[in-house]
């Protein structure tokens, strides 16, 4: 089963992301991380097919997580959807430049997130998925 890693320090947002994706992707398993280091640990320990990543987190900025993931052969193909809030649009260019696969601003609709995930899943760029 495909594993989706949801990274956000807000448990509410994590639940919303999961609920949004569960609508359009029925057979997936969710993993959660509340900080950047935890996200990287999850990546190291299990096969992750998609990361939904918040940019502002207490320990590591989402861009650092993004750069770290993209810096090694073993992980660089994992698709990453970056989430951020209004007023932070400047980071869009930075995120896309650092290799984000997609970029959504909160509030996003469940459909928009689901569509992005489906698009990335069908893109064939998923050699690591179990």
């Amino acid at each position: 089963m495909k594993q989706i890693l949801v990274v956000d320090d807000s448990p509410t947002i994590r639940r919303m992301v999961r609920a949004s994706l569960a609508r359009s992707l029925p057979a997936v398993q969710f993993l959660e991380a509340g900080s950047g280091l935890e996200a990287i640990e999850r990546l190291a320990v299990g096969a992750i097919s998609l990361i939904v990543l918040d940019l502002n987190m207490p320990d590591m900025h989402g861009l650092e997580v993004l750069n770290f993931v993209r810096s090694h052969q073993k992980y660089r193909h994992v698709p990453i959807i970056v989430l951020t809030t209004r007023g932070d649009e400047g980071s869009r260019t930075a995120a896309l430049g650092a290799g984000a696969s997609a970029y959504l601003t909160k509030p996003f609709t469940p459909e928009a997130l689901g569509n992005e995930a489906r698009r990335l899943f069908s893109g064939g760029d998923l050699s690591a998925s179990a």
Binding site: D9, S10, I13, N56, T85, K106, P107
Partner: peptide, 20 residues
């Protein structure tokens, strides 16, 4: 900073514009 940022994010998601 972090606490306001978090409130802003969730408020945005539940479309509570004033709090956001």
């Amino acid at each position: 900073f972090r606490s306001f940022h978090s409130i802003k994010g969730i408020a945005a998601m539940v479309e509570h514009r004033e709090a956001e």
